[in-house]
Amino acid sequence: MRIGVVTFPGSLDDRDAARAIRLAGADAVALWHGDHDLHGVDALVLPGGFSYGDYLRAGAIASLSPIMTEVIDAANKGMPVLGICNGFQMLTEAHLLDGGLIRNDKGRFICRDQGLRIENNASDWTTGFAANAEIVIPLKNGEGSFMASVETLKALEGEGRIVARYIGGNPNGSLNDIAGVTNARGNVVGLMPHPEHAVEAGFGPDTDNAMASGVDGLTFFTSVIAQALVAR
C-alpha cells in the first residue's frame, strides 16, 4: 500500500508521518502542495505544523493549495485521509470535516502526552482499536479547541462521528472533550493529537512499563493498511 504525505510551506511533521507509515508496513510517498498530482497513492496524510505561519486562520491558506483540489476529490470518492493537528485544521477549512479549531482556552501552547478514548473504531483509521480503547499519544498545539454549532455537535454525537475524546482532563476547552472527528463515510479523520510521534519504542510517551515506550499511535496507520487489504 502507498500512503501519500503532503508537505506544505511550514509543515513540520511530514517526515515523522512518513516514518510512521513505513514502520506500519506501507510505502510513504512524498507529495507537494503546489502539484496537482497524488501520484496514485491509496491513502493520504495531511501532517502537522504551521502551514503559512497560521496566517489568516490555522490551515486556511493551505486548504486553498493546488493539491487540495485532488485531495478533496479523492476524499469525496472514499480515499482514506488523515489530518493531524494542522492537517485537521486544513480538513475543517476545506469543509471535509465539520467544526473548527480555535485558540486553546487558557491561551497557552500545550505540549504533553495526552490520554484519549477511541470512541469510533469503525473509521478507516481506527479499525485496529478495541471498542473504547484508552491510549496515550502526544498533543502539541496552540489552536486545538474544537468548536461547532449546537446542531453540528448533536449530529456528530448522534452519528458516532467522535473518533477520539480527551480523558484525564480537557486540555484546551474543546466542546464535549473532542480530540478527533470523522466524516459520515468514515474515510476522513481529523485528530489534534499526534499518533505519528508514538510509533516506535524509545521515542514515544512514557508507559507504566518503561520510559518512552508508548506506541499507541501506530494503530492508526496499521488500521488503514488492514482496511485496504480487506477492500481488495
Partner: peptide, 9 residues
C-alpha cells in the same frame, strides 16, 4: 468563504 470561517467567526 475565505476571509472568515463561519464556524468560528
Amino acid at each position: 468563504t475565505v476571509l472568515s470561517n463561519s464556524v468560528i467567526e
